[in-house]
Simulated scan of single mutants.
Amino acid sequence: MKRLLIILGIIAAVALIGFFTLRSWTKSGSPEAIAQVDQNGLKIKVDYCQPYKKGRKIFGGLVPYGEVWRTGANEATVVDFDQNVLVAGQPLDEGEYSLWTIPSKDGWIAIFNRETGQWGTNYDQTKDIVRVPIVSREHSPKAEQFYISFSPTANGTDMILAWDETEAIIPIQKRERR
């Protein structure tokens, strides 16, 4: 019995070391980042990973047009709203959501999904809460690394998704309580 416990302990230790080594390796190519805003009583926090361009064609290449993208790298990007909001005019309740997008040449679709914590390739459309069209435009200078930032607006903020020569804008406003 003692020998079995020692063997199981060794297997568990090797598995843990392997897990953390793999996690460290994947994060080195696309490091973790946090984007957040706290303005006019609106708090939004985004946990995501930042892939690099590395000389690749990004939109319409590495990230195909017309297909769901994890909007970052590694695990699915998670957005946390501290209150009920309007996202591109559509209501979304406070809470955590995974953020997905469907890029295209002429505009994008932003998707807020109730499932969080999954790897970024495990998208389940049946758990979508909101899908909204958003504007994309040329971004200059080119962004070698994907990033998410916020730009204040009169009634809220714009969440900006930028990579390479493209940025997509998700308008967010506080939703009045009824």
Rank of each mutant, 00 (worst) to 15 (best):
T26E: 12
Q145W: 01
V68D: 09
A73C: 03
D164A: 03
G156H: 05
H139K: 14
Q125S: 12
D82G: 07
E115T: 11
L62P: 01
S140N: 11
P133C: 00
K43T: 11
V87L: 07
A162V: 03
K54G: 00
F20N: 11
P31K: 02
W163M: 02
L8F: 15
N122Y: 11
I34Q: 09
G66P: 03
G9L: 05
R131I: 05
A76G: 10
G107V: 02
G41M: 08
F81Y: 10
E67T: 13
E32H: 13
Y147E: 12
V130Q: 09
G41I: 08
N84L: 09
I170R: 02
R56M: 00
Q36K: 12
A76M: 07
Q39N: 12
G61W: 05
V63A: 13
E67K: 14
F19I: 13
S149N: 09
I169E: 02
A73M: 07
A35E: 05
I170C: 06
L161E: 07
A73H: 02
V63Y: 07
A76L: 04
L16P: 10
K27H: 15
T101G: 04
D38P: 06
K27M: 14
H139Y: 14
D82N: 11
R3I: 15
A35D: 06
F19Y: 14
G72I: 08
T126M: 12
D38N: 15
V79E: 03
E167F: 03
K45W: 03
E96I: 05
Y123A: 03
L22H: 15
T157V: 11
G29P: 00
E165Q: 14
E94G: 14
G95K: 08
L4V: 15
K53R: 12
P152N: 09
P133W: 00
R175S: 09
V46W: 04
P31T: 01
K142F: 10
L22F: 15
G18C: 06
N155F: 11
D164R: 06
P64V: 04
N122W: 08
R23Q: 13
T26K: 09
W69K: 08
A73I: 03
A168K: 03
F20A: 05
I148H: 00
S136F: 00
D128Y: 04
L92R: 02
R114K: 15
Y147Q: 12
